[in-house]
Design a protein around this nucleic acid. Structure first.
Lengths: 224, 224
DNA sequence: GCGCATCTCCGTCTTTTGGGGGAGGTCCGA
DNA sequence: TCGGACCTCCCCCAAAAGACGGAGATGCGC
């Protein structure tokens, strides 16, 4: 049985969603909330599996509430953001807050139910337009890699290793130590790869590494 | 009327999908193909709106065929990748190839029809697990920004500008020229921001800029 | 064997970078 | 009005980086 909570500041909308969901044999609406603050408290109290969360609400908006609920380690629930319009504005904040779904309120009831089940099973459900945008962003980044990867292939194995180390913020001395070679050799490799790639210094090499996908945002702890 | 083409090397599967889709009043299957090469030709000949494309096929796989079909400027169609297993392995290549959908063959017929309609309307449809992964990747990148952004806020406006310039691969002299200040002043700012951020040199500063989102992959032409 | 690419290392040299301190200016808030 | 933050510029200095040429060793394919 899926335990669901519905959060919306309009009681009528809230009840409507609840009725739709409660009508399903395997879904039970265990709580409702009308503000973000209520939602945070109710989530702790009732421990729902799935939360349907409106964004625009008084006192605390749905995104903030989502972030707080998911931050709390004592809850293991998933959140579907339900909004009326302007997905563009909120979607990235929603995803960052940890939402597993982002759908518009104009979807048919069956689709809403389907979204709840999908998310409960560990999947995610986005409005079709949102999915499209997410894909475009991804494709753009993936596409950028290929052009530059051709340049990358002109490097020898060792030079690529050195480039990776440079992109990790290492100095020549540190690279030498890491690769068990002399500092002079590192300088040779650096000069060589800069020349092959048409770059001027190691700072540009770092930019290149990120742009072509050799280095990736998120894989590095910037503590140095 | 949505004009659909079905591409699969197994005739039985192909016919099955075609029958499911042809059964819908607003969908018409205008072509079928059994190999990637056939698909490319048929797409040009029949100009379908939507293509359901299998991945594993003889002669040319579905991803390659997708890329070729979408490269051709004379066609304006959208592709949904239909695969049996291993979405992980192919999904990124599929998105790069330009696919608008990526679904598993075990979905219910209604969902397949829904996917076709969604994609035809300009949206996108991914298998729930895929969507989840895409979101995680995004959230990870967006999340990484916040921690470091706190460090970013310790910088003055000018220092942030200099950091951006560093992240663009500029030398101190170039930065001075760009900001209409003296080279000595640039050095002052650089020293100051390195110290504040706990970094050693400009290469690490570039890494930091990318990791915290000050610089973004794809926004830069690495021609220098 | 020979040519070729690669990896390794060594010099020397110039340029860039980064640290240190000092100093004058503005602007803003206490 | 006075301190503090900021931007600007200067000095000197040491370290790092990068360009340049040379050279020995390996392995691979013709």
């Amino acid at each position: 049985m899926l335990r669901v909570m519905v959060v919306d500041d309009q009681a009528l909308v809230r009840r409507g969603f609840s009725l739709i969901l409660d009508n399903e044999p395997d879904i039970e609406v265990v709580a409702e909330a009308g503000t973000g603050i209520e939602a945070v408290e109710a989530a702790r109290a009732h421990q729902p599996d799935i939360i349907l969360m409106d964004i625009r609400m008084p006192e605390m908006d749905g995104l903030e509430a989502t972030a707080r609920i998911l931050e709390a380690s004592d809850t293991a629930c998933r959140v579907i953001i339900l909004t009326t319009f302007d997905p563009d504005e909120y979607v990235f904040r929603a995803l960052r807050a940890g939402a597993s779904g982002f759908v518009l309120k104009d979807i048919p009831p069956e689709a809403l139910v389907q979204a709840v089940r999908t998310v409960a099973e560990g999947g995610a459900m986005l409005a079709p337009g949102i999915t499209k945008r997410l894909i475009s962003q991804f494709a753009q980044k993936l596409g950028a890699e290929r052009n530059l990867s051709e340049r990358l292939e002109r490097l020898t194995t060792r030079e690529r290793e050195v480039l990776e180390a440079i992109a990790a913020g290492k100095s020549n001395a540190e690279i030498a130590e890491a690769l068990f070679i002399g500092p002079a050799t590192v300088k040779t490799h650096v000069s060589s790869l800069l020349s092959k790639l048409g770059l001027r210094d190691r700072a540009q090499a770092v930019v290149f590494a990120y742009e072509c996908g050799l280095a990736t945002v998120g894989e590095r702890n910037v503590g140095f």
